[in-house]
Design a protein around this nucleic acid. Sequence first.
DNA 1: AAAAAAG
Length: 664
Amino acid sequence: MTQHHQPDSESADGRIKKPRHKKYQNQSYGERLAADATYDAPREDPKPVVREDSKPVVKGYRAEQARPDRSRDDRPVRSDDRSSDERPRYERTERPYAGNARDDRPAFRRDDRPQQNRGDRPYARTERDGKQYPRAAERTDRPQYRRDDRPQGDRTERPRFNRDDRTDRPQYRQDDRGPRSDDRSSYRRDDKPFVRRPSQEERRGEPIRREEPVIDLGTVADDNQFAALGIAPRLVQRLARDGITAPFPIQTATIPDALAGRDVLGRGQTGSGKTLGFGLPTLMRLSGGHTESRRPRGMILVPTRELAMQVHDALEPLAHVMNVSLKLIAGGLPYPKQIESLRRGVDLLIATPGRLIDLCEQGAADLGAVEVAVLDEADHMCDMGFMPAVTTLLDMTPPEGQRLLFSATLDNDVDKIVKTYLKDPVQHSTESGQATVSTMEHHLLVIEPAHKQSLTAELASRDGRTIVFVRTKLGADRIATQLRDRGVMAAALHGGLTQGMRNKTLDQFKDGSVPVLVATDVAARGIHVDDVGLVVQADPPAEHKDYLHRAGRTARAGGKGAVVTLLLPHQRRGMIRMAESAGVKAEPVRARPGDELVTELTGGTKPSGYPVKLPAPKPQRFSKGGGGKRFGSGRPGRGDNRGSSGPRRSNGGPRRTDGKSYQH
DNA sequence: AAAAAAG
């Protein structure tokens, strides 16, 4: 890279910045935004960098010098660690005419252009791998047909599938289709609200009578443990219908206290059913009450949009049988529906903080009637970045309301929230809190930097679903591309993508068309996908909690799973400490591509080495939930630096473009 | 320290 002016060096006015959390302590969200808009990053004067072989660089700094601590793992050592023979040769096709002057180009008209004698060329060359393949015409391994002497096959005898011949489904023709709006009972899910268009009378202002759903949920065993916890029969029945008859430990522990109206701190292992732990009591509490326009009575805050969707989808059928309305409030989806349903009055919000604050400031929502406030992934919601938003929201709720905090780990600054917002909380932890589930095995592999790519590819090329965690958004994109280049179908998931892409990618991962997900920590928490057999940490986690959360994507709900962490030699020590704090028992071992251990982990499959392309998303007909149509598509998510002070950095781009010096 | 969370 050549030296260039740093785009952000205009922030060199040396203003001192207060630490962010202090700065925001007494500011409203809006004030904070306003402040951010005009705020410049603190700036240390760039010290002259002197190198023996160069003049002092006073203004700006040389990129390569400015990153002395750039760790090897994210340095693009070489774009490809295959040996030069293995690596595909990308050949530049020769351009016939160089130069800009248009008049020195021979002017061919279409018909007097030199005829490339295509037939004489013995081989077609593909740009992609530089190999030469016989032209189709020369191939002897398959019959060559010209259009008109192709065997005619039995095209005419092939059974024709005709819509009208199908007997396996009712046949409607335009004119004998059932009446559209009146009788849809046969299409109607019995646990889904049937939204009826208001009649003219109703629109004129006569009161709308809400139909009580008629639901037959079947019977429930007498010894159903949910019933014993005090859960309403309708909920118990609905759960039983999905085969949920026995509560998990965290649910057994927290539900009675939560039902009693107490503030609860719940810590349960990953995949242990925390969602129902707070969901059921919340629904019980909200059931039967009256919600005013724009004044929801319950709110569940979650750190990512995907998690919000997941919680929403998990609670929706349950909320329905309790006659509780709920709404997903998250960024990336259109405002009008959210505003409209708030206006009509919705009992329970499942929200990401930013959008909810936004709606409150717009006056579309008022949290003054919130009886139950839930923080899912509480410790994450309490870290530096989220804390201001979370306190802003909690401040808007009445202090006497009930608060439920749930997480797999409870530390960080959760204490602050607990002290400020919870009264006489009961804490319930299942198991020892730290250790991961016993069906999970852990491997720490110390590897050479040059082997990282090929090892990742080997690990990911296994059968079944795999999540590869990386540290940065850029890294996620890069590794996903590299995996595809090596023949492993992988897609990147991170917050820098549009919500449409995020949904598409997650859907494809769920439906199996893309078995490998390369994700930042956006997917570290809460996201549940069945049968993720392996978690690969291509970059080790930043701290032990992250290890636990990432690892928790596998071995869920009693299933088996393995976690493999790739370590560069210098990351070994830190990882050992992390494993200790996380209660993970694993010894770092050296590993190279092709090692027995690796083969064993992957079941012996190997990447093909031939590049693959991402599948097109499946067309989503009648999609309900599942995400495809849920968020507005194509709208970019916020840039990741929204709200952060200082000049805007490129999205996930190289670090330290913010004018700060690397020298400490 | 990065990522996430509003457009």
